[in-house]
Design a protein around this nucleic acid. Structure first.
Length: 844
RNA sequence: GGGCGAUUAGCGCAGCGGUAGCGCACUUCCCUGACACGGAAGGGGUCACAGGUCCGAUUCCUGUAUCGCCCACCA
């Protein structure tokens, strides 16, 4: 490096440390990632997954968001105006629970908004005799927004550190005013078109959270239980059934056997009496009764499981619910139990949880001699609400639904058609969508009996007798949205009329969190808010997301978009895999194996962490691997040092017309091949091979090409200097989507007054007169000569008399004759293409 | 029970109808004028198993096993 060189340029860094601060600031000041909004054709719009801000930061976040960012940066360099907003998901149960604890409050929907409300706590620990304070839903939402803001800062900090090229001026919140407005508006549109409806029906019910939940929120878990053999009484005989849920005996409405089962045919048209309670129930026959299960005859209760619901519905059985919403046996003896013995038995079960009632009834049955043998332990799969800790119950209640094709074959096939038209990456992920749509058995239950969330924009008339008339909803007009019906009155009513005869009552429920999330493409692109933006960005180009939420987020979004526009919400869906811990267990908070993303970013640098993430293909579960990050860091440092070497050479320029040496032209051809391969890989969402193609070429470029032309370059050879500079620019661009920091740094060394590398264009392959083969063969022979020296245990710079290069391919390497000679420090070089085998020889 | 994916060197992963690849780790050598947070070279694999198609299969087909995920099963 010359003295003059030092004066012209500030000292160039040798390692990547500290680059992120410099460039994140510069990117933000120069608005490098701003969406310019020219028109639809030049726009590439991304439906970014809004992370749940009340969750803790997790290295898995880094993984999938990097995949998206790589694509965003690639598209930007391809000349697209990238619309890449960020949303914050601050809706839903996790936030609700956090806010309750943090501020020491709970929601009382009967309260009105109090602008001067101050929560009793602000983080910290609650004192011993602390009692949470009630507040209105609106106050609660305000508190949530306060707390979420803090969490969002943390997330934003991470995203910025990681180098996500998000346009931060386009940020949205899922509990924000605009999201509430859009969610309510979209719901009212569904309602208007008859796609949303309410009904009283058995629903999946979580007794811990005391809310209805949807099919999509279920997960099955192993659950221990006992088979109990109960004796029902028929004329002159006992009929034994087996059940794992004897506590529901009082809710029994029938015994069901298979119509082909000879064992029970004689009971046709007869009835039996239940043990303990002496309630008369019919013996009925249905195909769904399995002869080989249990005793082959089952008791149908309202409701033990989905089969009970099926029987109840198809055979018009009565409803005899005995469980409360809290999951306890009700505290009043139901009127269908009429015997004194039965009433006494029921009283012993009152208010017990299902779990305790099971034990109690078993001992009652044993006492009365109506249970055969002892309960037999068994383990079965039971459905749980994914966030719950007790099995789901099925209770009848009034809920809101949105159609999803489960009962509408036309809609179902339309939705399957949507799946056909959407490009899934990787393609096999489509099967999960198909399976889900094909397996839907109920419409989407969207009402939740929670307080925090987006309220339904509905009031009901209250009849003169004080009963709420759910059949006559009162709807707000579009310009009044968002509304909270529990704190404001519908137009034409005074607040005093709330809950009174002739007045109104609010729909107390809130919407499923996915009801809001399923609208992210509408929310982000400004539907019913900014018509111009909407035209330019919707339908969106890309939905990146996790494979675990295909059945929820992806499907729900497709559904809402289909119902609203009869259009797909996006063209492509990119599904990232899981992050596993180094032992290949799924990383999760409960296992305590979560890595906080800040640590590796600080230890290895953001480019290194991005390198690890980018190395994994879409849809492939990937182990957390710091080794891979070390490689990324080494690559980033190498890029810096190779750039430094090239740019420190005197008089280096980047003009193709000045490159005339065949080897240099061949190198550029070889590079062009990589540019094509990388672009092709990127277009098919295979960022990992784009990166690895580039990386492999880059190492050969450093090890072989630079070594070959070093001598010429030092001597100021124009052709070599220009080829080096041209290659450098191209390589920096190829790496830019993956390693945004180090490429930006080196790019600015090369173009001190220039734009960001991220706004430069993706390299266009150059056509040169030389094929790539010459360079490849020269590199091959250089490496053979190096090997020869290494095996002869001499230093690479040891001077040798003669180097002989022979065999097939040696003719093509002739274009590097002088460069090879210089690189191996040979006084003379000879070629012998006639030799049958490829090889080299060195004479000392 | 149905579906989807995986199985290739000690580890992490590519690949592909024609002699098995990359990186890490390992061994040896080198502070060579971009880089020691570096470089050069080397050893290491019956491509899970069994059949089939083919001149030829790690690759395509069928089946089996193991692992992971999704759905169904909850008497």
């Amino acid at each position: 490096m010359s003295e003059e060189g030092n004066k012209e340029q500030p000292e160039r860094a040798k390692t990547v440390d500290g680059l992120e601060k410099k460039w994140t600031k510069w990117w933000s000041e120069k608005e490098v990632y701003k969406y310019r909004g020219k028109d639809r054709a030049s726009t590439y719009s991304i439906d970014t997954p809004p992370p749940t801000v009340s969750g803790h930061l997790h290295v898995g976040h880094v993984f999938s968001y990097t995949h998206t960012d790589v694509m965003a940066r690639y598209k930007r360099m391809k000349g697209f105006d990238v619309f890449y907003p960020m949303g914050w998901d601050d809706n839903g149960l996790p936030t609700e629970r956090r806010v309750q604890n943090y501020y020491g409050v709970y929601v009382d929907t009967s309260l009105k908004f109090d602008p001067s409300f101050l929560p009793p706590l602000e983080g910290g620990k609650a004192p011993k005799d602390f009692k949470a304070a009630p507040c209105s839903r609106e106050n609660f939402i305000k508190l949530c927004e306060n707390l979420s803001r803090k969490d969002e800062e943390q997330f934003k900090d991470l995203w910025v550190k990681l180098g996500l090229s998000v346009d931060w001026s386009m940020t949205y919140h899922t509990i924000g005013r605009e999201c509430r407005r859009i969610s309510q508006l979209a719901f009212l549109e569904n309602l208007k078109r008859g796609e949303a409806y309410q009904k009283v029906a058995p629903v999946l019910w979580d007794t811990t959270f005391q809310t209805a939940v949807s099919q999509a929120e279920l997960e099955s878990r192993e659950y221990p239980g006992f088979y109990h053999k109960l004796l029902f009484h028929a004329d002159g005989e006992d009929v034994a059934i087996e059940t794992t849920r004897p506590e529901l005996l009082a809710a029994c409405v029938a015994l069901i056997a298979n119509p082909k089962d000879p064992r029970y045919l004689h009971l046709k048209g007869k009835s039996v009496k239940t043990p303990l309670f002496g309630v008369e129930v019919p013996v009925l026959f249905h195909e769904a009764a399995q002869m080989d299960k249990g005793a082959g005859i089952a008791m149908c209760c309202t409701f033990g499981d989905a089969t009970d619901v099926e029987w109840w519905r198809e055979m018009s059985l009565p409803v005899r619910p005995i469980l409360t919403k809290a999951g306890r046996i009700s505290s009043q003896v139901p009127d269908w139990i009429q015997t004194q013995k039965g009433k006494e038995a029921f009283e012993k079960l009152e208010n017990l949880t299902a779990f305790s009632a099971r034990k109690e009834i078993a001992s009652l049955l044993k006492e009365s001699g109506e249970m055969e043998g002892e309960p037999v332990p068994t383990s079965r799969m039971a459905n749980f609400y994914e966030k719950g800790s007790k099995p789901i119950e099925i209770l009848p209640s009034r809920q809101w639904y949105i159609i999803n094709g489960s009962h509408d074959e036309k809609l179902r096939s339309d939705l399957l058609e949507c799946g056909e038209k959407l490009s899934f990456h990787p393609a096999f992920m489509k099967r999960r969508y198909d399976n889900w749509v094909e397996g839907l058995s109920e419409d989407w239950l969207i009402s939740r009996q929670r307080f925090f969330g987006i309220p339904f924009p509905i009031w009901y008339r209250v009849k003169e007798n004080g009963e709420t008339d759910y059949l006559s909803p009162i709807l707000p007009s579009e310009e009044d949205l968002p509304v909270d019906p529990s704190s404001s009155a519908p137009r034409g009513f005074k607040e005093e009329m709330r809950g009174k005869g002739g007045g109104f009552a609010a729909e107390p429920d809130v919407m499923d969190t996915w009801a809001g999330s399923s609208l992210t493409p509408l929310l982000a692109s400004g539907w019913k808010r900014d018509g111009e933006l909407f035209e330019k960005t919707f339908p969106m180009d890309l939905r990146p997301q996790g494979q675990d939420i295909i059945r929820t987020w992806l499907f729900d979004t497709v559904l809402r978009s289909w119902l609203e526009f009869k259009k797909l919400p996006w063209k492509e869906a990119a599904l990232s895999g899981w992050i596993l811990d180094p032992d290949h267990k799924k990383m999760s908070k409960s296992k305590g194996n979560v890595v906080v993303p800040k640590e590796p970013i600080e230890a290895y640098g953001p480019d290194a962490v991005r390198y690890w993430a980018s190395s994994a293909r879409l849809g492939v579960d990937t182990a957390y691997d710091e080794g891979e990050m070390k490689i990324g860091r080494r690559l980033a440092n190498k890029i810096l040092n190779a750039s430094k070497f090239i740019l420190d050479l005197k008089g280096s320029e980047a003009e193709l017309s000045k490159v005339d040496s065949p080897l240099d032209l061949s190198l550029l051809s070889s590079l062009s091949e990589i540019e094509k391969k990388a672009a092709c890989a990127m277009e098919s969402f295979d960022h990992a091979s784009a990166l690895h193609e580039t990386e492999a070429f880059f190492w050969s470029f450093c090890d072989d090409y630079i070594e070959l032309v070093k001598d010429r370059a030092y001597k100021g050879d124009e052709s070599a200097l220009n080829a080096l500079r041209l290659s450098l620019d191209s390589l920096l661009s190829l790496f830019a989507p993956f390693l945004p920091f180090v490429t930006e740094e080196a790019w600015h060394w090369a173009h001190p007054e220039g734009l960001s590398v991220h706004l430069s264009s993706w390299p266009r392959p150059l056509e040169t007169s030389q094929s790539p083969e010459g360079f490849k063969k020269a590199a091959l022979f250089l490496s053979l000569l190096r090997k020869e020296k290494s095996e002869k245990k001499v230093s690479l710079k040891t001077e040798v008399k003669k180097a002989v290069v022979f065999g097939p391919g040696s003719d093509e390497a002739r274009i590097a004759s002088n460069d090879l000679k210089a690189a191996v420090h040979a006084l003379k070089i000879e070629f012998d293409p006639a030799a049958p085998e490829t090889g080299v020889r060195i004479e000392f």
